[in-house]
Design a protein around this nucleic acid. Structure first.
Length: 806
RNA sequence: GGGAGCAUAGCUCAGUUGGUUAGAGCACCUGCCUUACAAGCAGGGGGUCAUAAGUUCGAGUCUUAUUGUUCCCACCA
């Protein structure tokens, strides 16, 4: 029996605990069913869990539930990404300190404490939204096991010569003072100024004009470039010019990378202002001049500007240029600049010894592998392709940070040889341990440990390997790889998806997963990004769950279609709440009539009952088709509209027959019972994907005694009891239309829907079918008599309103 | 500059391979206590499907162009 009202606050928690206690979602390794495995994104532990997480994770979770009930053994682990820069930034903010002001050990301890706290919160939140991951498979990337896997990955690449240590230009964040990778850049439109400067020719009073946005780099100027095709400037090539303020001379060279249309068509090359400078630096073997230090201050070579921050130096230099009549004019411009995604600081380029993973040399391979993976929706693949085609640099994986996975590497102090750890000793921290052997090159025993840590993506890019026990169980790894599905939002295609493909290829020459499912973003009204700063959306997940319930939040995450951003709109929660309520009430009602009923397969079905079963078959087919395309929202639309049709039309047509077997006979009742039993049961299973709590509550109090399974969520979808019959569907829909017309008549005449009618005249091309439903139509319309007329179109006339005399 | 998505009712969105009169919910209006549900039910108004041309017997759906919008990538001299 179902209680009169459903209290989600009490019940949701109850069932969440029940699922955990009974291991309802636990992966069974020995099960023979085909495996469906999900490489769940380990959320970055950076303190903020937002509604976007809930949205994206729920969409993947629906797939897990769907696959469980359609014959798969679902492997659904969960992890947390809790090492590296994001964690450091969180801790620095929370503790209000800078990592370098305390010891490395002390800082790591703080980091561990902080991630522990947040991981508990994250896990609780995901459980409280009904996530059905197998929590016994949980991992976190800073754990010794993951560190070991990450270091193994590094050593494997090292052996395969896919990683190298080089003094190459790398992107640098002066605020986070670490190297970063191309994928960590974001572009931001910023206002700047083109400064037109006078560069005097050697031994001459003539000057050339050069436009620059970065005059603070004058001290790092190596040479000037013009385009070799630039006829006006041919005579300049080979001459020298004097660098303003610094008064040293640099040569004028030519290179076809110079854009004759931009600025003045003449470029100064500094080490380094941008990517082009690094190319020229290599090509022309230019002198390295470092104007900016690791923290963003001007260096010695800046002369009097030494010690100033970049922007302060720029302002000062412009003043001085003006004073010395070296500044011709200034044009304000707006341009896109690359900034570090985590802090918004403008990117610099620094030359330092860093570790790189080779990505540039296999672009064709990356594209080929991308083609072998099914992208859902397909158009999202273009983001991957764009990214691969435009890669500029190998993947820099060294980070000059403290909290993360260390490189298993030392350097020989005597000869500089790189010494890597033995695989059997992993995980190692080179700061606290030493190689077991002498330097293989010179026999030395003095080692310098590698102090840097690995890019956090270097670890999170092996989540398929971590999940499938790479190097722990070959058997499991071989059985599970490639995984079936990688779900993530579109912002991390270029990082998580790309890097994971790279690593899987290098390690095992395979694709990491067969399918990628890309979800959209949650936007505030007017399509703005949700931002705490703007306060443009009230989207705290915990608050939303306590206001609306987890089921309603989940319902909302299923609206919309895959890959598309959706606008956060609380109206959708109201609809979800209405659905949950209706589902409960409809179940209560149906159960009144099937509580002591066991379906008989030879039940003789009346037309309307056959009709609803056929409509169900139609809906189920669409539902499954959408799920095969990972369109969880469109699948739900189908289910939802079937459900409302079931309530508003079907139940209304059969309820009198169910209530009164003494009038209509047991056979008529049993026919409706059969359809009700089956439809409700299957709908509960299907709604269970989206609304696992309310459906479990209903199942536990109804079908469980007959079915026996511990949980609704262990059940399989059944094949339809009646085959989809298009003609039957149309005919039944017409019956609904007739009933609806009668209701319309009553509403128009402002009379109650239960008011009796003397006579209705039905005109239709399908009189034969409608006649077969006569008693149901009479009951649903309270008509005493029905007269039929053959006609082209369906229409209904009503005669004789019978007034009730109380 | 290159690429992708989107544009359907006041709002948020559906609309499968082209096929009667373009749908839903919210909002708005009207009515109804009906042996599941008033947190409910029944009904109503409201759309030149961004614009233009084309293919077709037939276009919201396919093609091309245009406009608007969002995103990705490149451009940082």
């Amino acid at each position: 029996m179902l209680e009169k009202k459903y209290d989600f606050k009490e019940k949701e928690k109850k069932w969440q605990e029940y699922w955990q206690e009974n291991n309802i979602y636990k992966f069974n390794e020995n099960c023979k069913k085909p495996i469906f495995s999900i490489d769940t994104p380990p959320p970055t532990v950076n303190g903020k869990i937002h509604i976007g997480h809930i949205f994206s994770y729920s969409q993947a979770e629906f797939i897990a539930r769907f696959k469980r009930m359609t014959g798969y053994n679902v492997f659904y682990p969960f992890g947390f990404d809790d090492n590296g820069l994001p964690t450091e930034l969180l801790v620095e903010k929370e503790k209000n300190l800078k990592a370098y002001t305390v010891s490395r050990e002390e800082f790591s301890k703080m980091c561990l404490e902080t991630v522990d706290k947040y991981e508990k919160e994250f896990k609780d939140l995901f459980i409280s939204v009904g996530n059905s991951a197998d929590w016994s498979l949980m991992y976190h990337t800073v754990s010794p096991e993951c560190q070991k896997a990450s270091q193994l990955s590094f050593l494997d690449l090292y052996k395969k010569n896919k990683v190298y240590y080089d003094n190459a230009p790398a992107l640098w964040c002066t605020k986070c003072h670490t190297a970063i990778a191309q994928s960590e850049l974001e572009s931001e439109e910023k206002s700047s100024t083109f400064n037109y400067l006078k560069f005097y020719l050697e031994n001459s009073n003539d000057y050339i004009e050069i436009a620059t946005t970065r005059p603070e780099l004058l001290c790092a100027c190596d040479c000037i470039f013009v385009n070799p095709k630039d006829e006006k400037r041919q005579s300049l090539i080979g001459k020298k010019v004097r660098v303003p303020l610094y008064n040293y001379y640099v040569p004028i060279l030519s290179d076809d990378k110079v854009d004759m249309e931009k600025g003045t068509g003449i470029v100064m090359c500094c080490t380094f202002g941008d990517q082009t400078d690094t190319q020229w630096y290599k090509k022309y073997k230019l002198e390295l001049k470092i104007a900016i230090d690791d923290y963003g201050y001007m260096t010695d070579i800046a002369g009097k500007y030494k010690g100033l921050k970049i922007k302060a130096a720029r302002e000062q230099i412009i003043e001085d240029l003006k004073a010395q009549d070296l500044l011709i004019k200034q044009d304000p411009i707006k341009h896109q600049v690359s900034v570090h995604e985590r802090c918004g600081t403008e990117m610099e380029i620094k030359l330092k010894k860093q570790w790189f993973i080779k990505t540039l040399e296999n672009k064709d391979k990356w594209l080929e592998l991308g083609d072998k993976i099914n992208w859902h929706p397909n158009f999202m693949k273009s983001r991957y392709v764009d990214w691969v085609q435009n890669l500029m640099m190998d993947w820099c994986i060294s980070r000059q940070k403290y909290f993360g996975v260390p490189f298993p590497v030392w350097y020989c102090k005597d000869c500089g040889e790189i010494i890597v750890a033995d695989e059997n000793d992993l995980p190692v921290n080179p700061l606290t341990s030493k190689p077991k052997h002498k330097c293989p090159k010179c026999g030395g025993t003095n080692y310098e440990p590698e102090k840097d840590i690995l890019d956090t993506w270097a670890t999170s890019s092996i989540t398929p390997q971590i999940n499938t026990r790479w190097n722990i169980s070959d058997e499991f790894y071989k059985k599970m790889m490639p995984m079936t599905l990688r779900p993530n939002a579109h912002d991390i295609i270029r990082t998580w998806d790309f890097y994971t493909i790279v690593k899987s290829y290098y390690h095992s020459n395979i694709i990491p997963w067969q399918n990628v499912m890309i979800s959209g973003f949650i936007m505030a009204s007017q399509g703005e990004k949700i931002s705490k700063r703007k306060g443009n959306a009230n989207t705290d997940p915990i608050k939303l769950i306590s206001t609306y319930s987890a089921d309603v939040i989940r319902y909302w995450t299923a609206t919309g279609s895959l890959g598309r951003d959706i606008i956060f709109n609380e109206d959708k929660f109201k609809i979800g709440a209405r659905l949950v309520n209706k589902l409960y009430n409809a179940s209560k009602f149906v159960w009144l009539f099937i509580e002591n009923y066991a379906p008989k397969e030879n039940t003789k079905l009346k037309q309307i009952d056959k009709w609803i079963l056929s409509k169900f078959a139609e809906m189920q087919k669409k539902f499954i088709n959408y799920f095969e395309k990972y369109e969880v929202g469109l699948a739900m639309n189908e289910l939802e509209s079937f459900f409302w049709n079931f309530c508003d039309n079907y139940i209304e047509l059969v309820k009198v027959r169910l209530y009164n077997p003494e009038i209509y006979g047991n056979e008529a009742k049993e026919s409706a019972q059969y359809a009700c039993f089956y439809c409700l049961f299957e709908m509960l299973k299907m709604f269970g994907i989206y609304l696992p709590h309310i459906t479990e509550e209903i199942y536990q109090n109804t079908y469980k005694t007959l079915i026996g399974a511990l949980s609704l969520h262990q059940l399989q979808l059944d094949a339809p009891k009646v085959k989809e019959d298009k003609g039957l569907n149309t005919n039944g829909d017409e019956v609904c239309q007739i009933v609806s017309q009668v209701r319309g008549f009553k509403t128009d005449n402002k009379i109650s829907l239960k008011t009796k009618l003397e006579k209705i005249i039905i005109s239709s091309p399908n009189i034969e079918f409608i006649k077969q439903c006569e008693s149901d139509i009479k009951d649903a319309t309270s008509a005493l008599e029905i007269i039929y007329e053959k006609a082209e179109k369906t229409s209904t006339q009503i005669q004789g309103i019978i007034e009730e005399t109380n």
